[in-house]
Write a protein that binds this DNA or RNA. Structure first.
Lengths: 147, 147
DNA sequence: CGATATAGTGGGGATATGCAAACCAGTGGT
DNA sequence: ACCACTGGTTTGCATATCCCCACTATATCG
């Protein structure tokens, strides 16, 4: 019971830490979104960032994943396609659907935006040992891996 | 040079992982925000969550930290005070300013919202060893600690 | 084959938030 | 005592996003 209690405590603690991280990065995210592309609404960045992290997907999946409405996502994807940031192919096995993904240019622009506004976190880990850094990357990787 | 190159790689990898985590949690955050309190706008949740993670602060600091405009933050804080979620005391040493913090009820409501919609991450760590879980919590704690 | 469901797209109205400006009370320097 | 400045609040306006609805093309089930 001690062990399972500790376990519970740990999961709660993880929740608090993730929460703190989300709080700390929210301002950064919104500002990145606002500066992502001059011709696009902020939400475009959230779409692009998700595709950057998880790869090509159908619009409906993207909308669900980023917590946006399907119509907004659709028009946003349309604009990003005409700007050359996204490419679309017919989804295999369903001719109603398309699969969208970042073009090299889109990928580069996301990377640039992240780089541009993410300096702060680099400096935070400056004093860390390489070992700790490696482990954090590895653990986060496991946490965010698709189920 | 090998070492510093590896270091650079690691920091980039950390950026990617944090990015993936933010992407993965964005939908959850927005939905939590929408359901936080029936009489409040979504952004109230972001304010409350930040105060939950980092403790009482001046309105201007909160606005800056969550990346919101000061006027919206001000009216939002006003509403939350009348709802009994936030309390305000005069800031020590500056009579123009106040310091706002969550009331016990506000704290409970944030916790309930997080609990309510954060189940998914608990199940993700179910198969982890206690050791890994402990270490992730510890490393995240160091990452989000105030500079 | 026919009926119903789903993927993507578009429109129209409601709301939340950002931005700019004005204002007041209090602060700090001169 | 003055004056420039800052923290907080409020107001008016612009825009982004959501929500509901409709429409077309395809898919799936009977």
């Amino acid at each position: 019971m001690q062990t399972s209690g500790d376990r519970r405590q740990l999961q709660l603690a993880l929740g608090e830490q993730i929460n703190a991280l989300l709080s700390a990065t929210r301002a950064l995210s919104e500002r990145s979104a606002a500066h992502f592309h001059p011709a696009l609404q902020p939400a475009a960045f959230h779409v692009a960032r998700w595709l950057y992290a998880y790869g090509p997907a159908k619009p409906s999946v993207v909308a669900e994943a980023v917590g946006m409405d399907r119509s907004s996502t659709s028009t946003l994807i349309g604009k990003m396609r005409t700007l050359g940031l996204l490419s679309a192919d017919p989804s295999p096995g369903d001719r109603r659907s398309i699969t969208v993904g970042l073009t090299p240019e889109g990928r580069a622009r996301v990377a640039a935006t992240l780089e541009d506004r993410g300096q702060e976190f680099y400096t935070r880990t400056e004093s860390w040992t390489t070992d700790d850094l490696t482990r954090l990357v590895e653990l986060l990787g496991r946490l965010t891996a698709e189920p």
